[in-house]
Design a protein around this nucleic acid. Sequence first.
DNA 1: GGGCCGAGCCAC
DNA 2: AAACGTGGCTCGGCCC
Length: 621
Amino acid sequence: MASSLDLGTAKNKIKLSPKYEYVITTTRAAEIAPILNEYKTLAIDTETTGLDPFLSEIILLQIGTVDGKAYVFDARTVDISVLRASLENPDIIKLLANAKFDYQMLRIAKNGAGIELNNIYDAMLAEEVLTAGLEYSASLASMCAKYVGVPLDKTIRNEFEDFTRNDTATFKAPFTSEQLEYAAVDVYIMHTIFESQLRALEKENLLDTAKLEFDVCIPIAEMELHGVYIDPNKWVSILEEVEIERKAKEKVLHSLAEPYSEQQGLFGASSTNFSSPAQMVKLFKRMGVDVRGEEVFDTNSSTLETINHPFARELLEYRGYDKVIKAFGQKLLQRINPKTKRLHPSFRQIIRTGRMSCSGPNLQQIPAKGSGPGTKIRECFVAPAGYKLLVADYSQCELRILAELSQDPVMMNAYIKGIDLHTDTASRIWGIPFDKVPKAQRSIAKTINFLLVYGGGPSTLAARAAISEDEAEALINVYFSIYKGVKAYLANSGKAALLNRYSKTILGRKRFFSIPTQDNPEFKRIRSSVEREGKNQPIQGTNADITKRAMYYIHRDIKRNNLKSHILFPVHDEILIESPEAEVEQVALIQKNCMEAAFADFVKSIPNKVDVMVCDYWKKD
DNA sequence: GGGCCGAGCCAC
DNA sequence: AAACGTGGCTCGGCCC
């Protein structure tokens, strides 16, 4: 393997000692700039005073070249905008680890000069693509150990956080040679990691997946910076209403529980914590309440629903209010960034199946269904004055993907003809004419259809549809006699996951499985979960691929047309955009076209029309 | 008093 | 014996 790295000679003293130039003047940086602009690849890294791009500053910018040179620019004294031509040169591939972070820093940190990195290769994302589903670490240190064979000392990196702006003297303190060398190493190793990963990606047929991730990385970085506006006044008033309801429910619970209270008289029933499952189980026992003749062992909602006692019903309602207040209440308001007045949740770009996850707050779990108190939360996600929200989701995305993957003629027929799948399913199962299918039958058919996406079995169906397991099994047998292609596909993909130790999406994105040997006591359990996960990942992961591709297209088209709209966030099969009123029509069309095009990129035999809702707040269709 | 984990519940 | 995929968040309860 061709490597520009000096791995040292002594066995136990392997140390990377890159040649680097420490640049402290803008004049010198301007001399280096045209040299850098001649390269096809550049390794890029930054050291900053912190992790929050809104609060932190860049203190070092490191650039490494393929021939083993490293430049360490002191961003405290160098105006790094003189390097813009290279960093924004679309013909140069920028090699980074966790590109989102450096992109955001260069983009909005005070001394980042508003630089917009492009054409990135992110070694962290590549590593996540290469190891999806497995226990892994995509940290630079792990990758350095794996691909370069040398450990990285991370303790030095933490020292950079001491360079805070609050203390001018500290901020301006000179760097030690160890610190500068550490900074240089970060970019020095990148080309080696890049070359090794490229070979691995090629070998695993994961280049297309990696490319998709790199494409969507910057749209995600921009999205996080732009943030999400919520109406704080609206939120406070909703919260007050919910709190009144919650207190009322609490009173009712107290009065029902009082006769059975453990500490009658002393502290009274007020010491009872209705949010504690353990206490509730005890309370039910004292009450002598049972579930179908059995003692109460848990208090989750499905159990409570089967308990025929007023306390159980009241507890269920109490939880609805309690959840809204505890999970979203003040937390949502506290998350509003004082600078931008918006929420800035962060997205993990790749989880096991290829989906994204969201945290701080998790906008992918804002209550949506039912008529409970939680559903009002979405109304607080409003368009600011002069703007509209564009909301669009894919209709039955995962089932359409299942139809595509299985090529089941009956399922495909429903989608191609544009008739309601669940009604069609019910009509075929029970031999009822399509337009005579009762709601209850359609509902069971819908449950079965969704069950398959998750690899569920008779017991799940029995619980969901409130029927016996025998009935559930019989139903599934009838279902599979109609959807033979689906049956064969699911069986095959479960087996393939076990055989190959991975499953894959239409794009080729893989989820890897580690399967223990048969003597492992967990073997049976793990084997069946691998089968279920192997059935699900191609579906769930393809959905993720589609949504990511759509985000990339939308971001590209908004930029290309110099529009001022922004992607707010995705929710798996839904994308929200914030758009100035003047360009709503144009952007709604972009959103529709991009989402449909992304779907058609992967799902060839089934259409999916996307309807964009133009709204003043986050609506659910 | 902080760390960890399971239970429970929110989303798709 | 059970057997529904992917997550994040909060709490209670336990540990040190």
